[in-house]
Amino acid sequence: MRGIIFAIAGGALITLQGVANARISHNIGSWQAASITQLTGFITALLIFLVVRDGKWQNFKQVKPLYVTGGALAAVIIFSSIIAMQQIGVTMTVSAVLIAQLGITFLIDSTGAFDVVKQKMRLPQFIGIGMMITGVILLGI
């Protein structure tokens, strides 16, 4: 039961973060909003890391530079979703984000790109994505 509550809270907080960013950007601008939320998130995460020490910072040398710098993508992610939320609302934005997210993950898994273990495309995943797109079209019309 506690696991379910944590998972629900996780999803709620992801959406809340997006909405908060859209709200903040309304006052101070999108790039400013993206910078400030990530700066305070960074400081908080760093403090927690310094306390729990659950891994080794130095190990980043063993990871490909492309993967280490992947966090930079968040600049475009946050900026795009701020504008999207302002234009098409929260529900449509989250729906479209999830479709693209599951779609791209599936594509990468099926091609084995970026050193992931290659997996076969399966029918249920196609059906799932198809249903999600149907739902978004219904939201949009």
Partner: peptide
Amino acid sequence: GIILALIAGSLVGLQ
């Protein structure tokens, strides 16, 4: 808006 959301989602998947 939809295109931006799709770009964001693709990058989330990649990231």
